[in-house]
Design a protein around this nucleic acid. Structure first.
Lengths: 189, 189
DNA sequence: CAATGCATGTAATAGGTTACATGATTTC
DNA sequence: GAAATCATGTAACCTATTACATGCATTG
């Protein structure tokens, strides 16, 4: 009776929400929970078997023609576990952001390279916003899943804006320095 | 000549910035890079040895009395590798947010429990903001490290605000429903 | 003299990705 | 008939955390 990992909860939650196969779970996570909790096949298939062994889901072989296919449904026990988790206190929050790490150490760079780093990051976030907008979920705007999509768009937009602002700040600082005399930032005589 | 992990870069960058021992690196990350790139002793000590073997840092035993102590400095090769990484394109961005996962599935809950989930998340972010303010780094406001701290405060504040807003939205929706007649949300007769 | 801080390290474990292997069915 | 999609699974690998083990030095 070891306790479940968050990845197991995603799978459990999606089965509850109607996802049937491991393949379907992967497809759905790739366009929904992916940006805050991804899952790979290497996790999904073994985890479905574990959930089944624990009695939280029920699997049944339902081949389509010659294609083997195992369909899962959530059990009452699984629904209880899901609800229990949702009301439990405490949640893992873990961010791994190599770009911020680069910004953190960017005093090592000259101003041009540092600015380029910030510019790239701003552009990246803008790309993510565009991607998010392209996968706008076709579900009720009052559903919690839609709310999370809305959060994702807002967060990425905020990030793009913050780095655009930093970009302006660094440019201004740089121009300010360049126009002041007595500086030897330039390589030319 | 395998390429470095971002954790190795953090260590390299901090040694460059003046951190001398593994212990010091851990102390610094715990109050600086921790929220976007943490490091544990289990990573730091073996990684320092690997960096040394690769010629990116140099270690020297400098015991303090009977306490063994190994002091590291960055090498020219290490400085090159650090600079190279900083200008390289592409950076890992990985978020694991179990709270968002709960929000994602919170249609499973009744409105009171869902609201509580959002309230807790808002309160948590507010606590993080307070913590960030308590570790305001005593360094120049023009340094890149200070910029990252500023970003952290702004990000956590934005999060607290976003969830405060969602909280208001859910409360309003709930009150709206409750005041409308012909509803059977109540368990009492 | 007790608690805290400085200091180093490893072994077990967990959690996850990537690459590989396989093959039918549907759509263009 | 080619390409995309549906479908399942595993083995090797990598990264990282946790818990444990050790012990001196400093501060209150």
């Amino acid at each position: 009776m070891s306790s479940l990992t968050p990845t197991a909860r995603v799978i459990l939650g999606l089965v509850k929400a109607g996802a049937e196969t491991g393949y379907e779970i992967k497809s759905i996570t790739d366009v929904s929970t992916r940006f805050f909790w991804g899952a790979s096949y290497g996790q999904i298939y073994p985890e479905l078997r574990r959930l089944e062994a624990a009695g939280l889901v029920e699997g049944e072989d339902q081949p389509r023609g010659a294609v083997r296919r195992r369909v899962y449904r959530i059990t009452p026990k699984g629904e209880g576990a899901l609800r229990q988790w949702l009301v439990e206190e405490g949640s893992l929050y873990d961010l791994r952001d190599e770009g911020l790490l680069k910004l953190f150490f960017s005093d090592e760079l000259d101003e041009g390279d540092a600015l380029e780093l910030v510019r790239r990051r701003r552009a990246w976030f803008e790309g993510v916003v565009a991607h998010f907008n392209s996968i706008r979920p076709p579900i009720s705007e009052e559903s919690s899943m839609f709310e999370v999509w809305r959060y994702g768009v807002a967060l990425m937009t905020w990030n793009a804006d913050w780095f655009a602002e930093l970009e302006r700040r660094l440019s201004r600082r740089r121009r300010g320095r360049a126009s002041r005399p007595g500086e030897n930032r330039d390589r030319s005589p």
